[in-house]
Amino acid sequence: MAGGARRSGVLSRGDPRLESLGTVASALLALGLVAVAVALSFYEKLDLERDIGVAVVRSFVQLAAIGYVIQLVFGLESLGYVLLLLAVMVGFAGWTSARRARGVPRALPTATVAIGTAAVCTLGLLLLLGVVPPTGRYLIPLGGMVVGNSMNATSLTLSRIRDDMDARRPYIEASLALGATSRQAVAPILKSSLRNALIPLVDSTKTAGIVFLPGAMAGMIIGGADPLEAVRLQMVVLYMLLGSVAIAAIIAGLLSYRFFFTSRHQLRTGLLGEK
């Protein structure tokens, strides 16, 4: 422990004691709130105890691990490792999203391409325009947000397309019979899937600052940053997320609907449920 920090007797920023408090004690205290959730689930028989338990353990292990990984990557001071870490994030997000999209053919490559393209486009643009410097300190957290939100949008798009293909199969077949191409026949489905995927973020963007303070801004303000500086970063983050979510959803939609049709615009009914 550094001797200098002991002099004042008051905890100040950068004090190792504050850091250890920040990591261990407060996390344990917050865990007390999870106990409330578990107790509620238990008494109301919601059967969520197992899920909550798994989620808590997983998040603890993952967050602790990523903390060390990020520290390691910062220490290496090489953009290559930053990009590698981002690539791993994209791969994992694609895998998670593909698992959500059961019944969608070739979901893994579709989801990975959608999320990866969204990340490359938005982070690339921010770098090109000089909005953020090309360092891990910016790219890793921003990349995490882009990848996470794109993943959610991709999952929503893919699972909605699959469900709608099933539910609206007679309409698709009727359109095909009237001379529509597969793209024209699924146009209403694509539209509703994309809307569905974008609504959560559009709504949170609309209400940002009124209903809730978004994560990046909340974190900066708690961390002691100037609120106006926090707002500036949050705007960058929100617009970046809107862009990336739209890109991911559009690519996921445009890639995935094709696999439901043959090259001669016939619906592959074998992929759908029984009529």
Binding site: P170, Y171, A174, P188
Partner: peptide
Amino acid sequence: MIFQLPALSG
């Protein structure tokens, strides 16, 4: 082509 169910869109 006419189907079992009309499936009208529009």
